[in-house]
Amino acid sequence: MPGFRTGTAWRDVPERYGTWATLHTRFRRWAADGTVDRMLRTAQAEADTAGDIDWLVSVDSTVVRAHRHAAGARKRGSAPRPSAGPEAA
């Protein structure tokens, strides 16, 4: 099951939708069997057909965190590798 995260606690869902435990169980079941994905694709297709979606994508890299090794930091005990580029003067 993909990791869904909204930042909202299940216990904060309005009571008119049922108990939070029932909603949580139903959501997990629907996410596992693909129902959530199908509902999202259907809603997107309908909105796209109606012209309600602007498919411009923007990524704000200021919120993307990378592990220090992904940034090129040396690992403990490893010696720097010589560059294949021209020597700096």
Rank of each mutant, 00 (worst) to 15 (best):
Y17F: 15
G18M: 04
T19E: 07
T19H: 04
W20T: 02
A21C: 03
A21H: 08
A21M: 04
A21Q: 14
T22G: 03
T22L: 05
T22F: 05
T22S: 09
L23Q: 08
H24Q: 15
H24C: 10
H24D: 10
T25L: 13
R26E: 06
R26W: 09
F27G: 03
R28S: 15
R29I: 11
R29G: 14
A31G: 13
A32D: 15
A32I: 01
D33M: 02
D33G: 02
G34Y: 10
G34M: 06
T35P: 02
V36M: 09
D37F: 00
R38N: 07
R38L: 10
R38Q: 13
M39S: 07
M39P: 00
M39R: 08
L40F: 11
R41F: 09
R41Y: 08
T42S: 12
T42G: 09
T42Q: 14
T42M: 05
A43G: 08
A43W: 09
A43E: 12
Q44F: 11
Q44P: 00
Q44E: 15
Q44H: 06
A45D: 14
A45G: 14
E46N: 07
E46Q: 10
A47M: 09
D48G: 05
D48M: 09
T49I: 04
A50F: 01
G51Y: 03
G51A: 03
G51E: 01
G51R: 02
D52P: 00
D52Y: 03
I53W: 07
D54M: 00
D54Y: 00
D54V: 00
D54K: 00
D54T: 05
W55C: 03
W55H: 09
L56S: 12
V57Q: 04
V57E: 11
S58M: 06
V59F: 04
V59D: 04
V59A: 09
D60N: 01
D60A: 02
S61Q: 05
S61L: 09
S61T: 02
S61I: 00
S61D: 11
S61V: 00
T62A: 10
V63F: 08
V63T: 14
V64L: 12
V64E: 13
V64T: 07
V64W: 05
V64D: 07
R65H: 12
R65A: 15
R65T: 14
A66G: 06
A66P: 00
A66L: 11
H67C: 07
H67R: 11
R68D: 15
A71W: 05
A71P: 01
A71I: 06
G72A: 02
A73F: 06
A73W: 07
R74I: 11
R74P: 13
K75H: 13
K75E: 15
R76W: 10
R76C: 13
R76S: 15
G77F: 06
S78D: 15
S78F: 01
S78I: 02
A79V: 10
A79S: 10
A79G: 05
P80H: 10
R81L: 12
R81C: 05
R81I: 08
P82W: 14
P82V: 12
P82D: 13
S83G: 08
S83A: 08
S83T: 09
